[in-house]
Amino acid sequence: MMDRAAIAARIPHQGSMCLLDGVERWDNEQIVCFSRSHLLAGNPLRAAGRLGIANAIEYAAQAMALHGALLAGDAAAARAGYLASVRELRWHCQQLDTLDAALSIHVQRLSGNAITAMYQFELAAAGSVLASGRLSVVLDAAALAPRLTSS
């Protein structure tokens, strides 16, 4: 199991912006993280005192970043990635901060290479799915720049 400090050492999100509290399990294809940061009054994603369900995307993106860092086998902080697309989103509630149970964040890598990655995600609490979808991230925007300008 991995704790919050070990997670923060591997992803670019620091301080209160590191939303993940721990890792339940991971392998080459997926990772399952947990968090109770949705209940913190100081959660940096809160707007007007509430934490809307759209923030599930950030929880999933951080789990993706951690998975990528673990796959790379690097204990150094990961370089920043850029969310490129969000697809097939399904919301099953309106707010995250009204749920007393820990969040379970499950992401599964569908494809990827050194430049991009695509993951499917599911955010749940107390056995109920709260949000799901598919996210793509650009890991190395500089590597894509020559491709975009030569087309």
Results as ranks from 00 to 15, higher is better:
C93E: 02
A9M: 08
N55M: 06
L83F: 08
Q14I: 00
E24P: 00
A56T: 14
I57M: 05
D27I: 06
A75L: 03
H67A: 04
R90D: 06
L70T: 05
L148E: 07
C93G: 11
V129T: 15
I105D: 03
A63K: 06
Q108N: 08
R90P: 00
G73W: 03
L20F: 06
Q62V: 05
R147H: 11
I53V: 15
A143K: 13
L39P: 01
V23C: 08
S151P: 02
R36L: 08
Y82H: 13
P12Y: 11
L148I: 14
G15W: 02
C33R: 03
V129E: 08
A9R: 10
S151D: 06
A5H: 13
L103S: 04
R4D: 10
S37P: 05
A54G: 09
L39I: 04
S128D: 13
L70P: 01
L139Y: 06
S111E: 09
R46C: 06
P12A: 13
H38E: 01
L130T: 00
Q120G: 12
G52C: 13
T149R: 14
L39Y: 06
A84T: 06
M1T: 11
R87M: 09
F34S: 08
E58N: 04
S132R: 14
I11F: 05
A125N: 07
A102H: 01
G49Q: 10
A61L: 14
L39E: 05
V129C: 15
L103Q: 02
D74Q: 14
Y59I: 03
Y119M: 00
N43Y: 07
L148W: 15
A41G: 02
A117D: 09
S132W: 03
L144W: 08
R10T: 04
Q120M: 02
D97V: 10
G42Y: 00
A5R: 13
L123K: 00
Q30N: 08
E122V: 12
L40M: 08
A101N: 10
L70V: 07
V129Q: 12
W91S: 09
G49D: 10
Q30A: 15
P12D: 11
A60Y: 11
D100Q: 12
L148A: 11
I57K: 02
N55C: 12
A75Q: 09
S111P: 00
H13T: 05
D97G: 07
S111F: 07
S128Q: 15
F121Y: 14
D97I: 05
S35Q: 04
G112P: 08
A41R: 14
L83C: 04
V137R: 03
D74E: 14
A41P: 10
A84W: 08
V138G: 02
E29T: 12
E88W: 01
L66T: 05
L71G: 06
V137M: 15
G42E: 13
R109S: 10
A78S: 15
M17K: 08
A142H: 12
C93I: 01
G133T: 05
A65Q: 05
T149K: 09
A8S: 15
A65P: 01
I11M: 03
G22T: 06
V23N: 09
A63H: 09
A143I: 02
R79P: 04
A69Q: 15
W91T: 01
D27C: 07
A80T: 08
A54M: 06
R147A: 12
L70I: 07
G68T: 04
D100M: 03
L89G: 01
L89E: 02
P44V: 10
